[in-house]
Structures are given as C-alpha cells and as structure tokens.
Design a protein around this nucleic acid. Structure first.
Lengths: 212, 212
DNA sequence: CCTTAACTGCACTTATGGTACAGTGATGAC
DNA sequence: GTCATCACTGTACCATAAGTGCAGTTAAGG
C-alpha cells in the first residue's frame, strides 16, 4: 500500500510482539497462528515465510526472552556492583534490585515464556531445550564465579556447592513464577528472591554477625 | 468379550495411567486422545464417556497427582517425626528423606504434571488453577504450622516470613523439576532440597552451632 | 533493468478435538 | 424374571488449526 519504510523484517518483529503477548495471556497451544496474523495484519503465507512452523515461533520467542533477560540482569548486577566495591554486598544489592524489578512487572513475569514454551510439547525440544540449557548454564557459571570471588573475602559459614547455590536462583525464579501465577499473588516472587538473599547472606556472613 | 470382571471403571484408570506416562514423556498437547485410546484398547466414544473433553483429563491427571503427592509426603514426614521427637530435627530428617525420594524417581518427577498441565492453555484454568492453588495453600499451611512449632523451641536466628519459607519449598521443587529436565540432571532436584534444608537449619539453628 | 526480500492469494491436505446418537452386554435392584 | 443402568462400541460427521505448494506482486537496491 503506502510506501511504508520496509525496515528489515518489521513484520517478523510484530509477529513476535503479538505472539508474546498472546502466549503470556493464554499459553502457547491456545495461541493460534490465525489469531496472530489477523492481529498483525499479515497473511498465513507471510507467517510461514518467517517461521517454518509453530515450533520455530516458540524458539524465536524463547531466544528473544533469553536475550532480553540477559541484558536486563546483566545491567542490573553491573549497576549494583558500581554502588558497592565489595563483591558480597554488590551481589546482595543486586538481588534486592532484582526483587524490585520482579514486583514492578505489570502482568506476569516474562519468564513464563520459558516454562510455557518448555513445557509445551517436547516435539521441538532438541532446539528449545538446548537453548534453555545453555542460558541456564551461563547463569550458573556467572553466579558460581561470583560466589568464588565472594568466598575469598568471606569464607562460607555454611558449606554449600556453589553450582547448586547458583541453580537455586534460577529454580526459585522459575518455580516462583508458577506459584505466583497459580496463587495470583504477584508479591510472591520478589519475596522468594529476598529469601534467597537471606540465604546467601547467611552462607557468607553467618547468622550472628551484623546485618546490613 | 470374555466376562472380565468389570470392577468400577477399570478403563478410566487405565486411561489415566496411559495418559500420565505419555504426558510426562511428551507433554500434554502432544499427547493425542487417539493415541491414548489405542494404547488402552478403547474407542473414542469410550474416552468421551469418561471425560467430557481433554481439559477434564488434565484435571483428573492433576487431581490424581495431588492426591498421590499428598499421601507420599504426608507419610514421609510422619515417618520422619516418629524417628525424632524434636520438631526441627524431625523436619530436617523429613527433608533428607524427601531428597532421597526425589533422586530415586526413575524418570522425570511426576510433579511435571503440575507445571505441564498448568502451563498448557489456560482455557481450562478456572478449575485447574484452583485445584493447584488449594494444594499449594494446603502445603503452605502445613509447613507454616510446623515452622511455628519449631520456632517455639528454636527462636529463629534469621527473621523470615514462615509463609514465604513454606512457599520456597514448593517453588524450589517446581523450579527444580524444570531445571533438572532442561539440564537433564536428575540429581539437581535432590541437591536443591538439601540446600533448602541447609537454609531451614540456618534459620533455626544459626551457622555457629553444631550441625547434625 | 534486474534481482531479491518480503510478502499476497488461493487451493488443498491432514490431524485432532469434539458431537450425535443408536445399540449392546453384563450387573445388580426389585 | 425383568428392568434399568453402567460402561462401553460403532458409525458418521463437523470444525478448527497446522501446514504445503505454488504462482503472482511490490518495493528497494545494486
């Protein structure tokens, strides 16, 4: 129609936006391609031009979410570290900021995408599970390295495996998303993050010492 | 055919068994009714005689799982309490036993059912979410009461909200199931339970005292 | 001018969930 | 003994949604 600037695959982006909203609202299986294309104003052929099949849409959605989370959390902990030179207190501040971010999110936490996509048929799991796994392993590594750094200054008062402690964060968030959805309690997730923070503090500072 | 004893809805049970296995292996959406009925040796009409629609199957699956978990965990913590008169140590023993149960489970933990069913379309969520919510609230209540009992003898060294600490258990398990699935690491879940145990111990015993 | 990316349009196939409804064999109540 | 009811079978049919195939179109850029 009108010569709208055709900036690189604007429709593809629109599809992802519309799809993400619908998936968060209703789940992946309940979101039909038909519905997406009418919302975007595109034809079925147009959809299948961008995505070979629906699984591919799921993959793209997941990738999009992982990238977004990556930058969000990366920035957050970096900002936290700029406030504190100490690795432990920087981390604790980061966790507090994370809890705030979690409670600020208007609707459901986008993290739903992970579980939503991941728990839908495993038909397309080869790719999707690997995507998920590499993202999780990246966070495990990041957190473990941080814990090792902290441990140099604060010898652990509770002997814990740092990989497990790192995984606990991911697990708690994923599980917390489910709980907050089911119980319709949006404060549950930030509260869990703060509990995790309490645990981390106990691990490195113990329970007798001063608390910030 | 042969006059097989028609004990109350034996086919219904078979459907649930077959469906559970398939759902755990492939997810709910990827499990077709056709596939279930051929495995059970029943007709489509037979299926829809028992379940008005597929959502009803999901509901029944979830109810079945919740009941099973209820008795399993109920028995477990009762046995643990019989070994220790002390409420804290009985609970800690229960958590250790729980971790063992989690690692013993051959394939994926059945808890997948919850998330699997819960994250599929929310079309049927009125019922399913409420079922889930009431089960979660029951566990919250149970754990909170236990923590209050423990707190009488062991004043908390870390001030935590007992509801949140109770929810942490549920969240950690649900999240741990996702992680262990994605990372294909069946030891991850029991390790998370043991970490939770460390936290509970730190809350009530602190980090300086003797550890069992 | 020609190619390519990003689509449209249309026709068609398959899978799956779901409906409708008549019939049947065994069991238990009366 | 018969009658109703439960737990199904059998057949036929409908709607939706995913996915295929392919020819045609439009705009941007070299």
């Amino acid at each position: 129609m009108t010569a709208v600037l055709n900036r690189s695959s604007s429709k593809r982006e629109r599809i992802l936006e519309v799809a993400e909203e619908a998936v968060l609202a209703k789940g992946f299986a309940a979101t039909s391609i038909e519905e997406i294309i009418t919302a975007v104003g595109i034809t079925k052929s147009g959809f299948f031009y961008h995505f070979p099949d629906k699984s591919d849409l799921a993959k793209a959605l997941l990738q999009r979410y992982i990238d977004h989370e990556e930058t969000l959390l990366g920035d957050l902990f970096q900002r936290a570290d700029e406030l504190h030179e100490d690795p432990l207190h920087g981390f604790l501040v980061g966790l507090k900021m994370l809890a705030e971010v979690m409670s600020d999110l208007p609707k459901a936490h986008p993290g739903c995408i992970i579980a939503s996509v991941c728990y839908q048929e495993q038909l397309f799991n080869r790719d999707v599970v690997e995507l998920n796994a590499s993202a999780l392993l990246a966070w495990r590594k990041r957190f473990r390295e941080r814990f090792e750094l902290i441990a140099k200054r604060y010898p652990p008062k509770i002997p814990v495996d740092f990989d497990a402690l790192a995984d606990m964060m991911s697990g708690l968030v994923d599980g917390g998303i489910i709980l907050s959805r089911v119980l319709k309690d949006k404060d549950l997730l930030p509260r869990q993050v703060m509990l995790y923070r309490d645990f981390v503090r106990a691990v490195f500072l113990g329970t007798g010492e001063d608390r910030a």
